[in-house]
């Protein structure tokens, strides 16, 4: 079985682009707080998702529906409706994070394939085993905090498939548990589906071409004229510490693990995930087709390096924690 390429779609046209570019599966979400990419102008209405699933299925691709925020007390109906609708539309899998939502989906739709979102941040055999045992989860999307040897060791101990991120925005915190955005704006990917919500982001140009990015009351960065920029997230901010201005947590950079696909296969990984539901169809077209070529090349015993730096945050790439060179 070859590696499955799981690709992002923020809009119906991106989904069609991903399928046409060779995605084995596409993940997407409804236009509300039930999915962790709840940005303005993105996501799918019920009718759009129905049409998108038909489009993908006609071409042999799967559609995975992300319902991966944490349901709020008293508003559970929104998440339950999303589960019911996605299941009735024929979604190939639901990507869930919340225990209550997983429980509802498993009881109400026992035949529905369930994946565990990276937002659940399950990274130990015990945690993953719980979701497999209690809800019949078939696949877990691993947090981007595990090294390649750790992923191999984990796969040897669990009874479900694993999916790892191979390209795109690099979340350096434990997903689902990061409170930085919430601290700065009151809104988070975990509860509202938005990290650094654009309603709280402001950019301004200074004389001389300097660009200042702000999130709420915090200055995230000041980019010199012509200096490559990154997203306005606190984890990629440049701050003054110990008398120096530096990226305290992480540089603006994107993950690109295209040279590690063979190692992921050997480590027992089933699926490769490309990040970027908030990106354009131009990004989807380029990244998906390059990675599909790399997956096919791997199968035929060839190597296929691809540099996608021009599409990367800060136009820089990294293999992140997979090859951890620090402690």
């Amino acid at each position: 079985m070859s590696l499955e390429l799981v690709c992002p779609a923020g809009t119906p046209s991106s989904l069609r682009e991903a399928v046409d570019a060779g995605a084995h599966a596409v993940y997407c979400g409804f236009r509300d707080e039930t999915n962790a990419r709840n940005f303005p102008g993105l996501n799918f209405s019920r009718k759009e998702l129905e049409e998108a699933i038909a489009y993908a299925h006609e071409r042999g691709a799967k559609v995975l529906v992300a319902i991966n925020t944490f349901a709020q007390a008293g508003r559970m109906a929104l998440w339950e409706q999303a589960v019911d609708d996605a299941a009735s539309m024929g979604a190939d899998a639901l990507i869930l994070a919340d225990l209550g939502v997983a429980d509802y989906a498993a009881r109400k739709h026992p035949g529905q394939r369930l994946h565990l979102s990276v937002q659940a941040s399950a990274s130990s055999p015990e945690a993953i085993g719980f979701y497999v045992r209690e809800f019949g989860v078939k696949r877990v999307v691993l947090p981007r905090v595990l090294t390649l040897p750790e992923i191999a060791a984990l796969n040897a101990e669990i009874d479900c498939e694993t999916e790892v991120f191979v390209f795109g925005g690099l979340c350096v915190m434990a997903e689902g548990r990061c409170l930085l955005s919430s601290y700065a704006t009151g809104k988070s990917p975990n509860m509202n589906g938005v990290c650094s919500p654009p309603s709280h982001v402001a950019y301004s140009e200074r004389e001389g071409g300097e660009m200042v990015s702000r999130l709420g009351e915090f200055t995230i960065n000041t980019f010199a004229a012509g200096e490559k920029a990154g997203y306005p997230t606190l984890c990629k901010g440049r701050f003054e510490a110990g008398g120096r201005k530096l990226y305290v947590f992480e540089d603006p950079t994107s993950l690109n693990a295209v040279d590690m696909l063979g190692e992921f296969a050997k480590a027992g990984v089933t699926a490769l995930k490309i990040e970027g539901r908030q990106r354009s169809k131009a990004y989807v077209r380029k990244v998906v087709s390059d990675f599909r070529r790399a997956v096919d090349a791997l199968e035929s015993g060839e190597a296929a390096h691809t540099s996608l730096a021009s599409l990367s945050e800060g136009t820089q790439e990294t293999e992140g924690v997979y090859r951890k060179t620090w402690r």
Partner: peptide
């Protein structure tokens, strides 16, 4: 071309209501 990539490379500059620009 991808809007975020043009923003990273500083080819495109946005100001004012970021939410509206994104939408």
């Amino acid at each position: 071309e991808d809007g975020d990539a043009l923003f990273f490379s500083r080819d495109i500059v946005i100001e004012g209501d970021t939410e509206a620009v994104l939408a």
